[in-house]
Nucleic acid binder design. Structure first.
Length: 308
RNA sequence: GCCGAGAUAGCUCAGUGGUAGAGCGCGGCCCUGAAAAGGCCGGCGUGGGGGGUCCGAUUCCCUCUCUCGGCA
């Protein structure tokens, strides 16, 4: 028979549902270490705004892929995958179980299913294409894409400028179609065996939790955190965290504190909804229905029961 | 109390004598190097109550109620 595969556990779900706390309980129970699967928690100095695990919590269970770079630096899925997998194997070699926890859908699926490597972002090409899009409109670029890679164009909407540009970028750099390269992806299936759990609760209750969490961020001092973040230049990835732009507008005096809070709440709710859309289609996920009042201990127990 | 403005989708508001839209919200979806990003689809409605004119009223007229300004 086949060789023994390395075991992994994933815990995904929308923002604010309680993944992190439940993960700590679970990790303790199974002698695991947590690997964050979050595109924003990788940044230092973005603690409150990303609801990062506290130092005290990190003492209970070791967390990885947090605070690995400064907010001025750009980050992307490819680096995430590479670094996260390295950490993952290190944990396994210690005889512990890696527990991936997070809500960044793309990071999650690229991690599991792989990506075509070798063609990273090319800032020069991108800025050229962006200028072209501004000047002639994205439909111009779309037509161009259609002539070189019909299949990719078929998958991308004419208004989705970013994806049109990426497809063109790949072609300009390699002379190959992105639609062909995209077929080269190797997932974790061969080497690893994984169980994936998703947390879900009734929408209304989830939104209430999200709203409350935003309120808590303000209590904890998100305003000060973002104010000091804005003192230096943020990378385009770091500055896309929910809360940054909204607070920037507040500092400029564009709207009141109350309106700022509402804005951040709304954007967080919309994000949670998009996350659910992303995870819902993944048939491998075993969904754990939780109630708004469930403690992280109870949630961990529900997962634990499905583990064996 | 008087004068004026208004009452249309969950919210803010357009518009029209032939039963109504937009933005946001809300719901659904897409996603392979920015992903907490970006993009797509969906109107979810007793048009404040009552009466009148008209073939036909959300639109015109009267009246009532309420809201907001101004004057007392």
């Amino acid at each position: 028979m086949g060789k023994i595969k390395k075991r992994l556990i994933f815990l995904v779900g929308p923002t604010g549902i309680g993944k992190s706390a439940a993960a700590i309980c679970l990790a303790k129970k199974i002698n695991g270490e947590i690997i964050s699967c979050d595109s924003m928690q990788v940044y230092r100095k973005m603690d409150i705004i990303t609801s990062k695990a506290l130092a005290s919590e990190r003492k209970i269970v070791k967390h990885h892929m947090l605070d690995i770079l400064d907010p001025g630096k750009q980050y992307d899925v490819a680096s995430y995958r590479k670094e996260a997998l390295a950490v993952c194997d290190r944990i396994i070699s210690k005889g512990k179980i890696p527990l991936f926890v997070g809500g960044s859908g793309l990071y999650y699926s690229i991690l599991i299913d792989g990506l075509f490597e070798r063609v990273g972002e090319d800032r020069l090409i991108r800025s050229k294409l962006n200028k072209e899009a501004d000047k002639r409109g994205s439909s111009y670029l779309y037509k161009k894409l259609k002539t070189i890679d019909k299949q990719a164009a078929g998958k991308i909407h004419p208004n989705d400028t970013r994806r049109i540009i990426r497809a063109l970028e790949v072609y300009l750099k390699t002379g190959k179609k992105i639609s062909e390269l995209q077929m080269e992806r190797a997932g974790l299936g061969k080497e690893y065996e994984f169980k994936i759990f998703g947390l879900d609760m009734p929408r209304n209750a989830l939104y209430e939790k999200v709203n409350n969490r935003v309120e808590r961020m303000f209590d904890l001092g998100i305003i000060g955190e973002v104010r000091s973040l804005l003192r230096s230049k943020l990378s385009k990835t770091a500055r896309s965290a929910i809360g940054i732009n909204e607070l920037k507008g507040f500092f400029k005096g564009n709207y009141s504190l109350e309106d700022t809070k509402e804005l951040i709440k709304r954007n967080s709710r919309n994000y949670a909804k998009r996350q659910l859309t992303w995870f819902r289609k993944d048939q491998r996920i075993k969904w754990i229905k939780i109630n708004p009042g469930d403690s992280s201990f109870q949630i961990a127990k529900k997962i634990w029961k499905k583990l064996s």
